[in-house]
Design a protein around this nucleic acid. Structure first.
Lengths: 350, 350
DNA sequence: TATAGCACCGGAACCAGTTCCGGAACTTCC
DNA sequence: GGAAGTTCCGGAACTGGTTCCGGTGCTATA
């Protein structure tokens, strides 16, 4: 609309291939779409014509009638009310291994179905534009990573009738399928482990409390400690980045120097926390045991390597993709929920 | 093609809006495309009808005639012959701040032109599929990040006539525009700085030697040292990941314990190198000065914060986007090259 | 050998927009 | 008051595919 665009030599059309092969347009179309009712000899002729002309189907024309594009979007959403946080949005996305795992898992199953995956970061300034992109029909459906409770994106997509699958339980109930990990169970694994290591003076670095994941892991940790008869732990909130984990740990030991066990709501923050503890002269795990969450590549890059709660992120993303494909096949399917079990991976930080 | 898809209630069409507004289809189209020759009163009527019907233009129909989709792809390519490296491709992409900066810079200028940006990781197994995606016309053009000398992607896109801009000088000459930083100048800044700090026993951690960036920075460093009359430095090759920087630094000091200055081909590796040096009992910058390359967020996360050669990645990506837009406007424009100047950012590691 | 049945192909309708072109209605000017 | 010129709208052609429907030519069967 905005950009005028001059003409290029136009690519060959179905008609030209048909003429070259001496058949009708319909037949060429059948060959391209692998319709079985085509004489093998004719098929060969047509295929040669396609080669010779260098024909490539025009997506717009095709999807105008089929109403499909054979591609889906992985949208990473940031809600509009997180200004300062949003400034570093893209840096966060391209710094947290989580998103790569999601992509890998989804790619895997989509690929085998011949569906393309495109990634769209949707920070606040792009919000409307992304919404427009999605409803215009560039893609058949969307995998939505929305981590903030107040994010309107899930609701909007649901309302617009865009087939969508979420990566976690939405902050507000929304009629969309989602995949999640059993957060309380995972956190309990971490808490039980710290206790079993003899740790009693526990603390936690929580995620942002406006994210279900941040909020859920914190309250689950409190619950777990209560079950063990332990007091409510000191809490410092981070934002799931390594730097915030570092700062949080510093704050924590300044305030509570005798801490001997630390549960951190994700591995990236845990990696930072370990570093801060060490710089403060604490040995990990000698003086304090640290347990992370995710089992991302950050857990392996930490020194010592992190004990952590493993989320099967790749499998979860694969399930998201499968749910999406199913949703595309049956549009009136009711939303489903799939919950995965976390496991504890014990390494050297505890 | 593969997924059969059942019918949803079809969205309103231009025709229905036209009926609702009591005008012709052509007029509604004019209103939507902001054609000035429409009576203001009629325009208001049509706009109301659009609101009421909840009309959204059908992308396929529109781009069938306009030959535009108003979206471009940012493709991150991995060449087919890097098996083991490819296994961690997505983890690398979503762990290196570089890609976030590219995205941010490109978004910025595309957004103001109303162009959508989608990100497509193209590791070897997806290679053909991505190529198909691009030539089918899902997007108007592509910003290609191709870092390996042997990558066939740039050549293929050029041959297919897809309007493309590269993020660096291609390994083989290709008739495409690209943006790059003056690598030798940047490396010279680093070398001169180390020398000016009194360092004489210099070494370097290089990037992969099948990447122009890796190769170029290494040879430029050798040249710079030669200019200072210093001997050829010990070299260990990494793969631009933090872990590889760590391993490389370990290898380096095992072999050459008296090193007092280290140039590392990117910040991520430099961050790892600093950590390895510290764990080996070296003080940075007391015992050894370290200089990185990029000035990415990794430089700030290192302890001490890294002295580094700044690439204006965001500006470079913005320029890529501008070159692409220009290429879309004039398809027969000849390829251009834009080279940016690096600067030295002195922090605490040197 | 006539006929039913089947495999396969072509014509044409259709998808939902954009844009060219002609013409109606209204001004403006003489 | 009529001619010329504007302004703005509608009809229709066009974009490049898919798919329905009907028909042709062949084979199998009685």
């Amino acid at each position: 609309m905005t950009t005028p665009r001059a003409e290029l030599p136009r690519p060959p059309t179905l008609d030209e291939v048909a003429v070259a092969a001496g058949v009708s347009r319909a037949t060429v179309s059948r060959v391209i779409n692998d319709v079985p009712t085509v004489d093998p000899r004719l098929r060969a002729v047509v295929e040669r014509a396609i080669q010779e002309t260098g024909y490539v189907p025009n997506l717009a024309a095709r999807s105008l009638v089929t109403r499909r594009t054979d591609s889906v979007a992985l949208v990473i959403s940031e809600p509009p009310n997180h200004r300062e946080y949003a400034a570093t949005f893209l840096n966060r996305v391209f710094t947290d291994p989580y998103f790569g795992r999601i992509t890998a898992g989804a790619q895997e199953v989509l690929r085998s179905d011949g569906i393309h995956l495109v990634i769209i970061p949707a920070d606040p300034p792009a919000h409307d534009q992304v919404l427009r992109y999605l409803r215009q029909g560039h893609v058949d459906g969307v995998l939505l990573i929305s981590s903030h409770a107040a994010d309107p994106f899930p609701g909007q997509l649901a309302e617009m009738g865009v087939v969508t699958v979420l990566s976690a339980r939405p902050g507000r109930p929304v009629p969309l399928s989602y995949v999640d990990v059993d957060q309380p169970a995972g956190v309990a694994l971490a808490a039980d482990h710290l206790v079993s290591r003899g740790r009693r003076r526990l603390a936690t670095i929580a995620g942002p409390q406006d994210m279900p994941a941040g909020q859920g892991r914190l309250s689950a940790f409190r619950d777990a400690l209560a079950r063990h008869g332990l007091p409510a732990p000191p809490v410092v909130e981070g934002d799931f980045t390594r730097a915030s984990g570092e700062a949080a740990a510093r704050a924590l030991i300044a305030e509570h120097p005798r801490i001997d066990g630390l549960f951190v709501a994700n591995d990236l923050m845990a990696e930072g926390a370990v570093r801060a503890l060490q710089e403060a002269g604490r040995d990990v795990p000698g003086d304090v045991s640290v347990v992370g969450f995710d089992d991302s590549s950050a857990a392996l890059e930490a020194h010592p390597q992190l004990t952590t709660v493993r989320q099967p992120v790749e499998e979860m993303a694969a399930e998201m993709a499968r749910l999406l494909l199913a949703g595309l096949r049956e549009p009136h399917r009711s939303p489903r929920t799939v919950i995965f079990n976390p496991t504890l991976v014990v390494r050297d930080s505890s």
